[in-house]
Design a protein around this nucleic acid. Structure first.
Length: 552
RNA sequence: GCGCCCAUAGCUCAGUUGGAUAGAGUGACGGACUACGAAUCCGUAGGUCGCAGGUUCGAAUCCUGCUGGGCGCGCCA
């Protein structure tokens, strides 16, 4: 609907200029909004006010001109008004809303899809947790966001893929091996020293017991033993991570190992490319990249004076590889504590000759847990933190995903476990799911009375004449443009609020008007409307990765 | 010291490239089941949009300066 209004306005503006009713004006960036106050119409635009300056005329005069030459070929608009300082308000022909309702039902689970992305290849890289311990809440938040973004992007016609980058080559894996070794030694000798920067969690002790039972460590020297433990444990932890993610309904398309960058020679190639571009230099025995030429505060080391590559070097190479794999855009989801890294990473991609804006980095803020009115204090360094699987086992996938996705990524989340566990109205997840289950229940009831949706329900829609019914249809009509906006803004949290509103509208409607009644025709009409609501809730929850249950 | 993010109802948060009278949930109080699921609905109360300037027809939104909080500033990963 919104798009049709936009089209009409574009045509009207062009025609007005072409025919000389208005002066030539640069392409205006006008908005179409749904007014908060229904008296201001179904849609409103600020177009007249936006171009008033360039037209050297009052917004109201311009609005009059535009209305007079309105290019409404389909007779979509029943009435226009000029309001406030120069808004043009549009009222849509009721019949057009009924037609729209018919298309929603016909489209079913395709309602809301679009071809916005034109099959463009996008990579979303997220979670990418080190294989040194189980994934925690922050990873879970990133996982929910990345996965939902991919769902939305694919729904909008992009070719979006999920990728997990495995840091299996760095020092942290070595430290994991040393930590496990130490815990194994401590089984006999509690005084055996533990590495200063070792991993503290209890899972390290569990690994020590488990692996030492299967592997003979006694005869190995320290280096051999710790290396062996590193290899075994990182694989085992990675399996656990994969399992946690699958339980969280996330299926990655690609698992990309850092070690592959070394073995495939990608890193050497990348360094050569940068060398050829004249962007490298040596100083203090180290190799530096001139990132400061591309917006970074200062240049960065990619090879240390001991000959080892930095983490940054592998990351540059990794991103060059993403580019070579043909992705037209890349979205990285990082914890906010990595924000200092964003500028240098973007600078590095530019240094590699990759276009500006190719890389988007979404930073996610902290998740704080609350239980029994108190914050659950966590400290990763001390190994005291709640894992994603613990939380999911406690409150369920649907609630965790919905709550994680209900906030903008830039806002910290206070996650109230008690509230998330509640299966009633206080919990927004259940509020939305209940609307869906309730509609399914109504259809079961209708079926008992021999009622079901006819092939062509459109003939009854004109019976939907109450304000509640018309506003429900309008709400349903917002869905496609909202989904597109979410794909552009990378902001799936808006969907949670929309779904709660839609569910609320339906619950109110349900309480006020009976759906299955003696009047068969009116029942058909109301069942159709209910079906459309059900479709949007199901499609919307699907984009969040949340189930739409038929019974609860 | 420099940089990024945040500040909206008692609490948790929305607020769509600046739009018309700033919203929702929750908490508090009071109501609604002899009919489709009361896991719901209706009503009341609640605001100096952190503070001070600026930009304009119009600012919670943009700019500047403050205050308060989170995070980051390594030849660590």
């Amino acid at each position: 609907m919104k798009k049709r209004i936009e089209r009409i306005l574009q045509d009207t503006l062009q025609l007005s200029i072409r025919e000389g009713y208005l002066n030539e004006t640069p392409d205006p960036n006008f908005a179409i909004q749904i007014p908060a106050d229904p008296r201001h119409g179904n849609f409103a635009t600020n177009l007249a006010m936006i171009i008033a300056g360039a037209q050297k005329n009052s917004p109201k005069k311009i609005a009059e001109v535009l209305i007079e030459h309105l290019q409404d070929r389909d007779n979509l608009i029943s009435k226009t008004e000029i309001g406030g300082p120069g808004f043009i308000n549009f009222f849509i022909e009721k019949e057009k809303w009924y037609e729209f309702l018919g298309t929603v039902i016909a489209l079913g689970d395709k309602y809301g899809e679009s071809n916005l992305g034109k099959n463009e290849k996008i990579m979303v890289e997220f979670v990418s947790a080190n294989p040194t311990g189980p994934i925690h809440l922050g990873h879970g938040r990133g996982a929910a966001l990345g996965d939902s973004l991919c769902r939305v992007l694919n729904f909008c016609g992009y070719d979006a893929r999920r990728e997990f980058y495995i840091n299996d080559g760095g020092r942290q894996v070595k430290i994991l091996g040393e930590s496990v070794y130490s815990r194994w030694k401590q089984l006999d000798d509690p005084a055996y020293p533990f590495p200063d920067n070792g991993y503290q969690g209890d899972y390290v002790k569990d690994l020590a017991i488990e692996v030492s039972n299967k592997t003979n460590l006694e005869d190995l020297d320290y280096n051999t033993a710790t290396n062996l433990l590193s290899d075994i444990c990182k694989e085992q932890i990675l399996e656990g991570i994969k399992e946690d993610l699958i339980n969280f309904r996330i299926n990655f398309d690609f698992w990309y190992k850092e070690s592959k960058l070394y073995s495939s020679g990608k890193i050497d190639t990348t360094i050569k490319v940068l060398e050829q571009r004249g962007l490298l230099y040596e100083k203090d025995g180290a190799l530096w990249l001139k990132t400061s030429l591309f917006g970074d505060d200062k240049d960065r080391v990619i090879k240390k004076n001991d000959g080892e590559l930095t983490y940054f070097a592998t990351d540059i190479s990794y991103h060059f590889d993403k580019w070579e794999r043909g992705f037209k855009r890349v979205i990285n989801i990082w914890g906010a504590d990595h924000h200092g890294y964003v500028d240098r990473m973007k600078a590095a991609t530019k240094a590699e000759g990759i276009p500006e804006n190719w890389l988007d980095v979404l930073l996610i803020q902290l998740v704080r847990l609350w239980e029994g009115g108190q914050e659950v204090k966590m400290s990763k360094r001390a190994g005291r933190y709640v894992t994603l699987s613990e939380l999911v086992n406690d409150v369920g996938v649907d609630a965790v995903r919905f709550i994680f996705l209900s906030k903008d990524n830039n806002s910290p989340i206070d996650f109230d476990i008690d509230l998330a566990k509640k299966k009633d109205s206080e919990n927004p997840v259940y509020y939305v799911q209940y609307a869906h289950a309730r509609i399914c229940s109504v259809f079961r009831k209708a079926a008992e009375q021999g009622l079901k949706l006819p092939e062509d329900p459109g003939q009854y829609f004109s019976l939907l004449d109450t304000e509640e019914e018309l506003s429900l249809i309008r709400k349903i009509a917002e869905f496609p443009s909202l989904v597109e906006e979410i794909a552009v803004d990378l902001a799936p949290h808006r969907l949670t609020y929309y779904l709660a509103e839609l569910a609320g509208n339906f619950h109110r409607y349900y309480n006020k008007h009976r759906i299955v009644i003696e009047d068969i025709h009116l029942s058909m009409a109301r069942l159709s409307l209910s079906m459309a609501v059900k479709i949007v809730i199901k499609n919307g929850l699907g984009l969040l990765g949340v189930n739409a249950p038929e019974e609860m």
